[in-house]
Computed example of a mutant assay.
Amino acid sequence: MALSYKARKRWSLVILLIGLPLYIIVAVTVADWLRRITGGPPMVVELVTFVVLGFLWMLPFRSVFLGVGQPDPEEDDKTR
């Protein structure tokens, strides 16, 4: 079942305002834990890790964010 435009807009706000900060906290905590255990990877490896994690969070939510910045297509049909 596909989400409506308004539902996708609401879910995108929930994901960005609640889910993303929680993901950042978990990612940094796991990275710090690995840094303590392994003695710390080189700075370049750490940078690549955080860049990959920065893009990884949005892959499952691609369908939610798709078209949210566009005008509501259902509202356009109502005005005609």
Rank of each mutant, 00 (worst) to 15 (best):
D77Y: 05
S4Q: 02
V64I: 15
I37A: 09
G19H: 00
Y23R: 00
G40F: 05
W33N: 06
P21Y: 00
V68R: 06
T79D: 01
L59H: 08
V68Q: 03
G39I: 00
Y5V: 02
A7S: 11
F65I: 11
I37V: 15
V30D: 03
S12L: 01
T29I: 06
L59Q: 11
G19W: 01
V30K: 04
L56V: 15
T38M: 04
R36H: 12
V45G: 08
E75S: 00
F50T: 04
D76V: 13
W11D: 08
L34E: 08
G54M: 01
V64Q: 06
L53S: 04
L56F: 14
I37R: 07
E74A: 13
L59R: 14
P60K: 09
S4G: 15
L3R: 08
R8D: 06
M58L: 14
L22R: 03
R10W: 06
E74P: 01
A2N: 11
D72C: 02
R62P: 07
V51T: 13
G69C: 07
K78D: 09
A31L: 09
K6R: 13
T29C: 05
I15P: 04
G54L: 02
A27V: 13
I24D: 01
T38H: 08
R80Q: 11
A2Q: 09
P21M: 02
W11M: 14
L59S: 14
M1T: 15
D76A: 12
E46D: 11
T49C: 12
P60N: 05
S12I: 06
P60H: 06
F55M: 10
V45D: 07
R80P: 04
I25Q: 01
G69H: 08
S63P: 11
I25Y: 02
